[in-house]
Design a protein around this nucleic acid. Structure first.
Lengths: 253, 253
DNA sequence: CGCTCGGTTGAGTGAATTCAAGGGCTGTGG
DNA sequence: CCACAGCCCTTGAATTCACTCAACCGAGCG
């Protein structure tokens, strides 16, 4: 429904036919055949969200699932007293929503401007039954997410503040470096989509501690801050060292 | 292969035909039809593990996947300097192993005596392609695991030591109370399969802190310790209150 | 009997939090 | 154009919760 009232004037990279969708090779529809894509094309709709806008609320019924096409989405859970923990960060091509369950287990909030390629949950579930390709890809993606979230449990449960921030920056740097694997040149600049507060929610820290660790890494010459939200990785080896992870390459991301 | 050299003399509840397997209705094979079960029956083998025995090692190739039939298995990750975080605890009917990936992402260790109903990973993967019922159930289980692990991220990232232990005990109590949902009578006794050290690894604490929190809850009359490993829940309402979770019912477990 | 292992408890420390203040940037309105 | 408010971020000082270090207890076992 690109004809809806939309916040920004948009006709971004991805909102047309599935065939020419930029993230199709990585999204849940990656394994779909051309006829299957025609089906998806007929069922899908795009929806945009402004930064800070709620996409789904924990405990409430959700009617849609889909794929993040543009922007960054946070998944989080809040305790009654307000303490909040981010439990995931979704980037373009990531799947969003909970198939086979009416009630959303977590809050989903747009961090940046976000565009989602959506399906009605029920329709998507039926589609899964019929299309082994779709279901197979969803299973793969869910298994990967599970591995990643368990990896994050190690960070939350055992790493120091310094290690947490270094791990986070290392992941972003890898992602920024063309999503390629190993070759990570020093001097890469990473654009932070998150505020200090959002990072603190992701890392299980307070905003002040995050800020202090930024300052510390800067003081040591591991990173440089072009602005509060632009980080240059000056010494990737030392960043990895500070992250507490062994060597380099084997990360899941 | 129950004819293999096995550690204990065993012919426990579950090791025969799939049809009469006690956990079949909850395991990955739950949706399989009779002919499918015949296939599984032909491919499966049972393997037993002694307490403390390694079932899989992070970073190493694994050849099998399967279902925990008896006992408790821990999934964990260890940092180079020895810090360790448990990232999951597997009970009977839980799936164990990582389909579609040769290298195990985590250590799997038998906490108690364990029996696993195993399949060669490759064979299981092929079976998934052919049996939508199998794949569907695996997808469901993986989605549930993902939700649970994200729930655990909240515990690790935001909860106090007291809240962590109370949450853990509340989960065990619910599980012990017949896996039923709400009705939780006071006085239920929970048998702890884990040592204080294993609990500390699961909760992201030290062994001393776990012990202190046990003592504290005992002093307050929330629980009673019949022995170090047998906990009576004297006041479930106050336990829930101490867990930091809202009200009671909605937990994922 | 003496050892080890799992568990508890106490004392002191320290890393991250809380509380508090201030700086810089942006957008708005006088 | 400047003044001001609000937001995001940083930094300092004090506090606290969990950790480290250390001693001790009881049960099981060679």
């Amino acid at each position: 429904m690109t004809a809806n009232p939309i916040f920004r004037v948009v006709e971004g990279p991805a909102s047309g036919r599935c065939e020419q969708c930029g993230i199709r090779k990585k999204a849940v529809c990656a394994y779909c055949s051309t006829p299957e894509l025609v089906l998806l094309d007929a069922m899908k709709s795009y929806k945009d969200f402004a930064p800070g806008e709620e996409i789904a609320a924990a405990g409430e019924e959700t009617t849609h699932v889909g794929t993040v096409v543009e922007g960054v989405v946070s998944l989080s859970k809040t305790m009654i007293d307000g303490r909040r923990q981010m439990v995931g960060l979704l980037f373009p091509s990531d799947f969003i929503g909970r198939p086979f369950r009416a009630i959303a287990p977590f809050d989903a909030v747009a961090v940046t401007h976000v565009r989602v390629c959506r399906f009605k949950r029920k329709s998507f579930e039926s589609l899964c039954e019929e299309s082994p390709n779709l279901e197979k890809r969803l299973l793969e993606m869910t298994l990967d997410e599970l591995d990643a979230s368990r990896e994050w449990m190690l960070l939350l449960g055992r790493k120091s503040a310094r290690e947490k921030l270094a791990s986070f920056l290392a992941i972003l740097a890898r992602r920024a470096a063309g999503l390629a694997d190993k070759p990570l040149a020093n001097g890469v600049t990473v654009e932070l989509a998150l505020t200090r507060e959002q990072m603190s929610e992701y890392l299980g820290l307070t905003i002040e501690t995050v800020s202090r660790q930024f300052s510390q890494l800067k003081r040591e010459g591991v990173i440089a801050l072009k602005s509060a939200r632009e980080v240059a990785i000056l010494d990737f080896a030392r960043l990895l060292d500070a992250s507490g992870d062994e060597s380099d390459g084997d990360a899941l991301y």
